[in-house]
Design a protein around this nucleic acid. Sequence first.
DNA 1: AGACCCCTGGAC
DNA 2: GTCCAGGGGTCT
Length: 289
Amino acid sequence: MPELPEVETIARTLTPCIQHRIISGVTLLNPGTLQGPLPLERVEQATITGVRRRGKLLLWDLAHAMSTGIEPGMITDSDTLVGLAFHLKMSGRVFAYPAQTQPGTHTRAIFDLDDGQRIFFDDARKFGLIRVLTPSTLADWPFWNKLGPEPFALDPQAFARLFAGKRGQMKALLLNQSVLAGVGNIYADESLFRAGINPATPAHKVSAPQLQSLHRQLLDVLNESINACGSSIRDYRTARGDAGAFQNAFCVYGRAGKPCTVCANLLAISRVAGRTTVFCPKCQPLDNF
DNA sequence: AGACCCCTGGAC
DNA sequence: GTCCAGGGGTCT
């Protein structure tokens, strides 16, 4: 389940492999993987000018040789190719393979590069998606347009304002990509535990110091995970095929019934916002209002 | 706000 | 064989 740190790691490991390369060909093995109105062939002969992350999206910036250095007005045309977006959802992977590697059972799309490398989009569960980006298709993509701010772009006051006066549960808001981009089930649970906030707490009942603590703990856990190349629970790997290591540092995720790392009481499991939620009833009480 | 759906490998 | 994982869309 790639969240912000995992997608960030994929972007960083992919950059040296594919930046400045030209896409010489594409193969779409599962039609349902491509979303949006534009065919994947639109990216053929484009140069990959950069690799980025936005929320849980992996983005390739693309430029067509024909549209560079000609008329400045042309490159803002609403139909001009600007990039590719990948959402890995639960089981998506993006790998860089050597020339002539053959696709596996779960390979959904292949990007052949001018140096022979083959970039595979593998996705066992077919939840993942690829979109060809132009100014026009971006404008017609609700998920993109509603995407909330990046956690690292917020100061403590701006972070607190995301939750001010909201009646939803804290964990539901953290997971809501239009409130904050990039946080999924793992880092929601881990950051709420570190901040001592019960995941089911209504946001408007969380105090200012608690929100400030949550901001600090969220940034810390995201940074620690990025430094460990992410968390490998099931499918996630870096673009080089390596597993991350942050799963070994989880305090609560996947540890229901085990002792709390702080107080040694047993961790509880529940469902909040429709997701499995693990927390410490003693360190994250719901009754302190 | 919650239920259901998409899909499939892996755990029991 | 059944259940579970879960991001996000959609419908109630």
